[in-house]
Computed example of a mutant assay.
Amino acid sequence: MKALNELTLFAETAKQGSFSKVANQMDMTPAAVSASIKRLEEQVGFPLFVRTTRRLSLTGEGELFLTKVNCALATLNEGVEEIANARGALTGNIYVSAPSDFGRNLLLDWINEFTDLHENVTVRLELSDQLVDMYSKPIDVAIRYGELPDSNMVAIPLCPQNVRVLCASPDYIRHHSPVLHPNDLNQHNCISFMVAGSVHNHWPLSYDSQQVVIETKGAISANDGDVVRRLGLKGRGIVNKSLIDASQDIIEGKLRKVLPDWQGESVPLYMVCADKRQLRPIIREFQKFLKEKCQSQFDKVSHILNN
Rank of each mutant, 00 (worst) to 15 (best):
S192I: 04
Q248K: 08
A84D: 05
R256H: 02
Y145F: 15
L9P: 11
H175Y: 12
L185F: 09
D171A: 09
S209M: 03
L48S: 09
N162L: 03
D171V: 03
G264A: 03
V22P: 00
D109E: 15
S206R: 01
V227I: 14
S192C: 12
I282K: 07
Q187Y: 11
V258D: 04
N186V: 00
L205P: 05
P170K: 07
D109C: 07
H202D: 04
R124A: 00
E82P: 05
V44E: 10
S128L: 09
R229M: 15
V141P: 11
L106F: 14
R54I: 05
Q297P: 02
D27E: 14
N5Q: 14
A219C: 10
L40M: 09
E41F: 04
A168K: 06
N85Y: 08
I220W: 15
D245T: 05
K254Q: 13
R124K: 08
Q187L: 05
S136N: 11
E81F: 01
G92N: 11
A274R: 15
H202R: 08
S192N: 11
Q278H: 15
L185D: 06
L106T: 10
G232K: 10
H175V: 13
S18K: 09
R87Q: 15
N307E: 07
Q16F: 04
S151F: 14
V227S: 06
I83H: 10
I238F: 04
G197W: 02
G232C: 13
L243F: 02
L107H: 12
W110R: 09
L243G: 01
E63P: 04
I214K: 05
H181S: 03
L58S: 02
F298P: 00
S169R: 03
R284G: 04
G225E: 04
P99F: 13
P204Q: 05
M1H: 14
L48M: 10
L127T: 02
R236A: 15
E41L: 08
R229G: 07
I111G: 13
W110F: 07
A89W: 06
L127P: 03
E82S: 12
A246N: 00
L7A: 07
A168N: 08
A23T: 05
N85W: 03
L158A: 15
S128Y: 09
I143M: 13
N189I: 03
R277F: 08
E292A: 14
T75V: 13
R54Y: 12
Q43I: 06
L279K: 08
I282T: 11
N223A: 15
K2L: 13
V121G: 04
A98T: 10
E41N: 07
E6V: 04
S128G: 11
A142M: 04
L108A: 09
P281A: 00
V141Q: 08
D133C: 07
S192E: 05
L66D: 01
E78I: 10
Y207A: 00
F298Y: 12
P160E: 12
Q263A: 01
P47L: 04
P182N: 09
G62S: 06
Q43K: 12
P138S: 13
F10H: 06
A98K: 01
R54V: 07
G62Q: 06
A74T: 06
A246Q: 02
N183G: 00
E6M: 14
L233H: 05
E12L: 14
R164S: 04
N306K: 14
